[in-house]
Design a protein around this nucleic acid. Structure first.
Lengths: 304, 304
DNA sequence: AATATATCATGAGCCGTATTCATAATCTTT
DNA sequence: AAAGATTATGAATACGGCTCATGATATATT
């Protein structure tokens, strides 16, 4: 018999593209989803998915159920919102810690949208630096940590947000402009312009330069626009998310190049405790964030 | 976590008015529903029902979930209809046996409505008489039996449709017109006008007259209008459902009186095998029937 | 009032079933 | 060809929903 859990699975499946990744999203095993799908198909007597080489595509009946899932989940979400309003609970709080500095750029509009739906929830953005943000969750010092870490820890659940590429940003007339993609060595003689955060928090350094034992000079500044301005005026190069710089590139203000042959990619997760993950407004926040980011940010893909 | 089964339960609850009767509808025990409700209330932190004396009323949050349930179940129904169309199964058949003769009157419009939704389903109304209609289900001679029996039998599930009152219909100038309600003895000297069916199939005889050892003369005819015409022209009295005669009474063509102090009531059920009950179009047919009857027929109440 | 007859609530235990685990099968990539 | 990644499947496990039995409470009946 059809249950909401099946709808959730199908939704995750369209978004993730494979059963395994869909399974992560709904916090189940790949096997569980496989069984669920089989049960669904047995019940309706149709194939819901058709494996298309590596990935899985939904059949027409599957699509139909996804449509159902979307409307149903939407209805459920608003109903649950109404419920918590009816309960008149003393208005929750949602304290957010950002590990990823650029995230400010997309988070602000999300927070505005969220505030309209949940005016009674107090939003609190903690932007100071913490050596170990995930520890704050367990200590109940914060409710949600947004970052790229997803190492399993007991009591913590990760909610995949999206995946994006980090590009090297250079002035339009840079000596490396001809290269299709940059290697670690290319950064050796450059000045790297970054946010004022520790090295381990900068993907380019942690995952590319440090392994290659390359330590370029660094210069820091707070705002993304300031970084771009410094780059444009040839004070150095930077590494920024594709969606954050698209406008500047399109406008010809700077140029962007891939880092490494297959690019430097980063996954974003929202991390919460299991308890917090159950709160309707938290689920709604995460859902809103995912939806809006996929809709508004260019070059954003599902978490892999 | 909210699942469709909870929504089904809440819907049944509003319609049935008590937990026990709601339980019958969803084919579970009263205890199961009680636990479900408790789980729901624990999850959302609100009471969903408030006991109001004998019966149970839904609280505002409960109402909100019922609204959700209605839309969701509606969406699910149409999605499942679309699915079976997509599957392109060789079009099912729905063979219906009517135990209750008057049911023709409300069944026709239902069948028309149903045909529009499920043009590929072949409808077949078997109106001949069968000594034991429920046996036809097990023999796969029919798919749905509509009648007032609901004695538990293995392999057969009953789907409550509605409850109505059987009234005594008399000419406007009948000698008993002054009585508020009639007793069994009042029928002793009357001619009873009925459909041409065995005595056991006539509620008035089986449940009122036979126990009182009263055997009035009988005269039979096929059509409801013919019965009413005979009554109006003083050839006898009849016992017919309240909703079937309302227009004739309002028009002053005949008069109607209650039978016994608290009236003679009849429950209608659709009976199917468990297997058939799972077919989407069968579920849709029963759901349509219930909905339409409650909307269109006067004096119809939920099954008790 | 007292009894009978409904109803719902609740805890214990069972049973069903969804999930996981382990492994085979299949397809892609290097 | 081998490695890697993905899905399918059967068996075992574990969780949770359901039933059963019973008590509590309210409403009708005498």
């Amino acid at each position: 018999m059809l249950e909401i859990r099946h709808l959730r699975t199908l939704l995750a499946l369209t978004e993730a593209g494979t059963v395994s990744r869909a399974a992560e999203r709904v916090h189940l095993t790949q096997s569980a989803l496989s069984h669920q799908l089989k049960a669904l198909e047995a019940h309706y007597g149709v194939a819901m998915v058709k494996r298309h080489g590596q990935s899985v595509k939904l059949t027409e009946p599957g699509q139909r159920l996804v449509t159902l899932a979307r409307t149903v989940m939407g209805e459920v979400r608003t109903a649950e919102r109404d419920l918590t309003k009816l309960v008149g609970k003393p208005a929750g709080t949602l304290r957010i810690v950002l590990e990823c500095h650029t995230c400010f750029d997309w988070l602000m509009p999300i927070m505005d949208a969220f505030r309209k739906h949940w005016p009674e929830v107090e939003l609190d953005l903690v932007s100071g630096f913490h050596p170990n943000p995930l520890a704050l969750l367990a200590d109940n010092k914060t409710d949600l940590v947004i970052g790229s870490e997803n190492k399993p820890r007991r009591g913590i659940v990760y909610h995949p947000l999206f995946r994006f590429e980090v590009l090297a940003v250079m002035p339009t007339d840079h000596r490396l402009k001809a290269k299709r993609h940059l290697a670690a060595s290319d950064f050796a003689k450059e000045t790297l312009i970054t946010y004022p955060v520790p090295e381990e928090r900068i993907d380019l350094i942690r995952r590319v330069l440090k392994p290659a034992k390359i330590h370029p000079r660094r210069r820091t500044t707070e705002l993304t626009v300031a970084i771009l301005q410094l780059v444009a005026s040839r004070r150095g190069v930077a590494a920024l998310p594709n969606w954050g710089i698209k406008n500047y590139v399109d406008y010809g203000y700077v140029i962007a190049r891939r880092i490494g042959k297959s690019g430097l990619w980063s996954n974003l997760y929202g991390a919460t405790t299991g308890e917090v993950a159950r709160l309707p407004f938290v689920r709604d926040f995460l859902e809103t964030a995912r939806r809006e980011c996929f809709a508004k940010l260019d070059g954003v893909v599902p978490v892999q």
